[in-house]
Simulated scan of single mutants.
Amino acid sequence: MTLRTSYALNQWNAGHDRFVVREDHTRAFKTLAACGFRAVEIPCGSGRWEPLGRKDWIEAFYGSIAGLRQALADCGISAVSSFVFNPAEPIFEDDAFGLSVLRPADHPRILAALVQYAQILPELGGDTLVVRALPNWSADAACDAPTMQIAADCWNAVAAMATEHGVRLALNFDCVTMARTGDDIALLLDLCDRATIVLSIDTADAAIMGIDPVALLTRFADRVGHVQLKNALSRDELDEYRLPFPDKFMLAGGGARNIPRWYTDLGDEDGIVDIAAFRAALAGHDYRGWTVIESDQSPVPATSAMLNAWFLQNAT
C-alpha cells in the first residue's frame, strides 16, 4: 500500500526567532520536495514568528492564501494536508491565553479560532483539521463521562462547522494529555459524531505513554483518519506527565532522567516504536487518511527529513 504522506513543519518552527522569513520556508519546502514529500502539515500559531500559522499572517507574508499555495507549488509541494491546533496555546491576536475544551465558556472562542483553518484548508489542497483533544493531566479533572461530554460538545460543534467547508476534524492525544488509556480515548470518541470526527494517532506519543500504537490502531481502525508517524526513544516510566508544565519540564527539560530527546527519526535503531509493524497494520486496515511524518526535537530538521524519506522508500 502506498501511504498518502505529508511532512510536519513543527520541527522547523522551534522558537520565536526561527522560521520567520520566506527564505527559510522556501528552503524547508524544497528540502521536503527533494525528499519526495508533496504535502506539509502546519502548526497553528500566533504572531509574526509563525507566519504560516494564521490566515492573516499568511496574507501578510504571501499576499493571499493562493499566494502561499503558489509558493508551495513553485517548490514542488502540492498541498497543505492539515493544520494542527492546541487550544491551550496563546492566541495573541484574539487576546486568548489558554483556552480549554473543559470550560464551556471557552467553546465559542475555540470554534471562532478554528473557522479560518476550515476555510483555507480546501484552498491549500487539504482536508483535515487536527486538534489536541484534551488538556494536560490534572488532579482536578477526571476522564469520566460528564467531563468527556463537555469536551465532546465543543468538538462536535467544531466538526459541524468544518464539515460545511469539506474539512474533517481529527482528535489527537499526546503523551502528556489527561487521557492515559485506550478506554479514556474511547470514552471521548463515543460521544463525538462518528460521521465528522476521526481519531489521530501519534505513534511516538502513544509509545511514550506506554500504549502500543499497533494495538491502538487495531482497536480504533474504523475511526482512525489521521496518523502522525514518528519514533520515540523512551517511555514515561516515572509518570512525569503529572508534573506541572510537563511540556517544559518533561519533554523539553528531560525530566528526572534527563532524557536528551524523547522523539527520533523513523529508522533510529534505539527507537521503541515498531514502525514496520505499524505500517503493515495500516495496510491491513486499508487506511486511506494522511500519514504525517514527524521528527520532533530534531537538531537538524533537513537531515531528519532525508533520513525519514530514505526509511520510507527503502525499509521493509
Rank of each mutant, 00 (worst) to 15 (best):
Y7G: 03
A8Y: 02
W12S: 03
W12L: 00
D17S: 11
F19S: 04
D24G: 02
H25S: 05
H25T: 02
F29Q: 00
K30D: 00
A34W: 00
C35F: 02
F37N: 00
S46G: 13
W49T: 15
E50Q: 01
L52C: 05
K55H: 11
D56N: 10
I65M: 04
A66K: 08
Q70S: 05
Q70R: 05
D74V: 00
S82R: 09
I91K: 11
A96F: 14
R109H: 13
I110T: 09
A112S: 14
A113P: 11
I120M: 10
L121T: 03
P122M: 06
P122W: 04
E123Y: 04
V130C: 03
P135F: 07
N136H: 13
S138L: 02
A139T: 15
A139Y: 12
A141I: 14
A145S: 13
Q149M: 14
A151H: 09
N156A: 11
A157P: 08
V158D: 13
V158R: 08
E164K: 14
G166S: 07
V167K: 01
L169H: 08
L171T: 09
D174M: 12
L188N: 14
R194I: 14
T196M: 01
V198H: 10
L199A: 14
A206E: 13
D212W: 10
P213K: 06
T218W: 15
T218P: 12
R223P: 12
V224Y: 01
V224T: 10
G225Y: 03
H226T: 01
V227W: 02
P246E: 09
K248F: 08
M250S: 15
A252K: 14
G254L: 00
R257C: 10
I259M: 07
I259F: 14
W262P: 04
D265H: 05
L266H: 02
L266S: 07
D268L: 01
G271V: 01
G271I: 00
A276K: 13
F278L: 12
A281T: 07
A281K: 04
A281D: 09
L282I: 02
A283K: 07
H285V: 11
Y287N: 13
S295P: 13
S295W: 04
D296T: 02
A305W: 00
M306D: 09
L307R: 04
N308Q: 06
N314A: 13
A315C: 14
